[in-house]
């Protein structure tokens, strides 16, 4: 019997495909998310919109709160560690979370290095803006990728940009001759063996979800049509007027993403969406997607 193999780590993400992973800050919200049909919940202390508003250093959540969420739901529980903060990740593994998100939404603990994720039993998901970044994270042991988007803005534009970039990068690789791949690896700043693998298979070696700024059922469906395997919704649900209704609607839109009539039906009367932020109004220092490399 073998545990913590690539197949087992990446396999859980395969099971989450076509689903919605929702940010929650307590057991009550976790239950709302599960009842709405979430495939997993992401435990964090404050949703990204509040991290933006409150400022200060954003860290791993209180293990007591994460325990309460694990206790409350039967679906997988993920939790965030700061970029490079391997001890937060050790703690999250020790208390038995199902996935660790090494997340730019929290304040980075190391500006040079991400966590060596191969050292862990618990699988990791990491954010990426392009193929090179995705392959660097996979090279460090990430078992799942998500777009960075721009979390806490309710503005999907960056998630779209990152997804389109990853797709375009993969398309470019798959048209190259084998002799061109080393230069591609240099340009992408990515491990050569992973560049070869993507060039041959035409896809990422792990599941890729959309994240960062999704706020509506149509946002989720668009990201699915752009080729994502599933979606994360952070502030978009519990910062909206009617979280339960919005959560259910986003779940349905993610499954029936090719059916505009169903998306129209579930988009009716959802109440106020979260207030969005125009990305151009953010200073570079306020942009989470610039964190990590």
């Amino acid at each position: 019997m073998e545990q913590a193999t690539d197949r087992v780590k990446r396999g859980l993400a395969e099971m989450l495909k076509g689903g919605v992973i929702m940010d929650v800050v307590n057991a009550e919200q976790a239950k709302v998310a599960e009842d709405a049909g979430a495939v997993a919940v992401m435990a964090l202390e404050r949703v990204p919109a509040d991290i933006r508003k409150d400022g200060g250093v954003a860290r791993m959540s209180d293990p007591e709160m994460i325990d309460a969420i694990i206790e409350a739901v039967s679906i997988p529980v993920m939790a965030k560690a700061r970029i490079g903060h391997f001890v937060e990740a050790q703690v999250l593994q020790a208390i038995g979370v199902d996935y660790v998100d090494e997340s730019e939404v929290l304040t980075p603990a190391d500006e040079e290095n991400h966590i060596d994720k191969w050292q862990f039993t618990t699988p990791f998901v990491c954010g990426a803006r392009n193929l090179g970044e995705a392959l660097r994270r996979i090279g460090e042991g990430a078992a799942m990728i998500r777009t960075k988007g721009e979390a806490g803005t309710g503005n999907v534009v960056e998630a779209v940009r990152h997804m389109r970039q990853i797709t375009a990068d993969i398309r470019a690789l798959s048209t190259m001759g084998s002799e061109e791949l080393m230069r591609a690896a240099r340009d992408l700043q990515a491990p050569f063996d992973l560049v070869q693998e993507v060039a041959n298979s035409g896809k990422l070696p792990v599941v890729n979800f959309a994240a960062g700024g999704l706020a509506t059922p149509a946002d989720a469906a668009m990201m699915m049509q752009l080729g994502c395997d599933g979606v994360f919704v952070g502030s978009g649900i519990f910062k909206s007027g009617d979280p339960s209704a919005r959560a259910k609607a986003i779940v349905e839109a993610t499954t029936y993403y090719q059916d505009p009539l169903i998306i129209a039906k579930v988009s009716r009367n959802l109440g106020e969406p979260m207030v969005g932020i125009e990305i151009d109004t953010l200073q570079d220092s306020e942009r989470f997607d610039k964190r990590g490399w």
């Binding site: 073998e2 396999g11 979370v97 618990t122």
Partner: peptide, 12 residues
């Protein structure tokens, strides 16, 4: 979830 959480997932 009879075998436990993700850390208890396995192949054999």
């Amino acid at each position: 979830n009879a075998f436990g959480n993700q850390n208890d997932s396995f192949e054999a």
